[in-house]
């Protein structure tokens, strides 16, 4: 399988007071199309930062990052926004739905940023929600939905643009065991059904084990794959 994502000798530092803190160092990583991969590690190991870099929300301080062969490090802010909008779907631990919007409208947002009309985006968002069994909750606001439903709305928002990769940050961290299984099943189903690459950040070994490939981060460095 061709590589979708390639990071070479990546390094990420943040300013801390007068000095700098290195969060990631010497990261070299390749992720193939259609692959399922989990990134695990202890708190502060840099896994969320790595996910942010993979998603174009943060930039590498040093090193190289190629997404489908394109150099991400050299992209402008609007090119990065376009990359996130068209090629990457995000699922967050706390769902991050806009509270005042309905489930349907939350799913519509990425499509609207693509310039798609309200009517067309509504149709496509409804399809995405239906595929996750949420058609009856389309007009509900997040506060009226359970945690599992909210996460599935977030997944619908992530997949509505048919991205090549879904990046999930602790997607089941705020859910109970039963809902956790449902959400994981949904995410893995997306991978199986559409070949969507799935990268999950988790500290839960059970979740990590469900992915074909596991990488661990320790003090900002990748330890050998545990596939």
């Amino acid at each position: 399988m061709p590589e979708l994502i390639r990071i070479e000798e990546g390094e990420k530092t943040f300013a801390a007071g007068r000095g700098q803190t290195t969060i990631l160092s010497n990261i070299t990583l390749g992720i193939e199309r259609g692959e399922t991969m989990s990134i695990s590690g202890r708190s502060g190991s840099g896994k969320t930062t790595l996910l942010s870099i993979l998603g174009g929300m943060e930039r590498l301080t040093r090193g190289r990052y190629l997404f489908a062969g394109d150099d991400v490090v050299g992209m402008t802010a609007s090119e990065l926004a376009r990359l996130r909008n068209r090629h990457i779907g995000f699922v967050f631990q706390h769902f991050h739905l806009i509270a005042s919007y309905t489930a349907l409208e939350n799913v519509q947002i990425p499509l609207l940023y693509q310039g798609i009309s309200l009517r067309e985006s509504r149709k496509r968002a409804l399809e995405a929600l239906s595929s996750l069994g949420l058609e009856e909750n389309a007009r509900h606001k997040p506060r009226m939905l359970s945690g599992g439903q909210q996460q599935r709305v977030a997944i619908a928002r992530a997949i509505v643009t048919r991205p090549e990769v879904i990046l999930a940050d602790e997607p089941t961290g705020a859910l109970d065991e039963l809902t956790e299984r449902e959400v994981m099943s949904t995410l893995l189903g997306m991978n199986a059904q559409h070949g969507t690459t799935l990268v999950i950040v988790t500290h839960n070994p059970d979740i990590a084990r469900q992915c074909a490939r596991v990488i661990r981060l320790h003090d900002g460095q990748v330890t050998p794959d545990d596939t």
Binding site: S78, R82, N85, H96, T161
Partner: peptide, 16 residues
Amino acid sequence: MVEVGIRFAVGSTTRD
């Protein structure tokens, strides 16, 4: 700000 973060994540630019 959280909303702005969500919008950025789904493809909005600062200008948007």
